[in-house]
Amino acid sequence: MKKNNVFVLAQKEAADHLRDPGFLVLLATYTAIIFASTYMYGSMEHQNNSTLLSSINIQMISRFTPLIGIVLGFDAVVREQKSGSLNVLLTHPLFRDNILAGKLLGSMLLAASIIIFSVFVSVGTLLIFFGLELRETDLLRIAAFTLLTFFYVVIFLGIAILISTIVKEATDSLTYNVVIWLFICILFGAILKTLVSIFTGQTPNESVLLTHLLNLSPLHHYGEAIIGRADLSFMGVNMESTIGGIFDTRYSLSQCLREFRMNIIMLILMPVVLFIIDFIAFLRKDLTL
């Protein structure tokens, strides 16, 4: 009935983050990391593709951007529940799902703003410092990259909100989230390699099982869709597809999108599924104290 309330809640969620010094420090750090890595990459020589696109340090982005989702979501529900503010909020004319929808919307909005902000700062800097040329194809690919990065971050937002719905303490939520982040973004490839070689005795890089298991990781889909690398995690699986993701200017963007449609679909589907789980968990929970 009152769709407006979703926006009121979304706005409050966004405002809470924007006024949170910790969040702002993270935003600044994140932008600095992206900016510095882009600048460094930009000054290196690249063999292939567009220099502009090659300058975007996907490895760095893929590892650190999920933190945005985590920071935005890890205490979203548990904090309100713990403080009893949820108790009060629920006495006002809004449905439960409005609350979660508002929180998701506000966080997604901020995530999008941060990603767009960091991409614009990085690309803008490259253009100014190196006098690079921004071609239409680059622009489209950057737009696609921004969108995919957004979905990638939203996956972690979904995970963080789910955890924050389940656990009782915000600190627990943060711990679990960081563990999941470490697992997915840093160690997934290495753990998978180890496990597969222990259980199958095969050389990990050739194992079909490994490629199947990689599909579980959002990082895998993100890395493959954007630069054609199967795994971007630390000491991860070293596999590359013939097309270097949507950043491979040898192929048209539509060709790239077609080639990596499964990855892209997964990147879109994962947050959707997570959101559905979030809603179910939130609605089933007795939120009142």
Binding site: N5, K12, D16, S83, S85, V88, P93
Partner: peptide, 24 residues
Amino acid sequence: PEPAGFYDNLTARQNLRFYAKLYN
């Protein structure tokens, strides 16, 4: 309600303003 929690990081006015917004 009991217990009742509010947004500790907001002022009394900001808290009430938020609730008021829910009623348009």
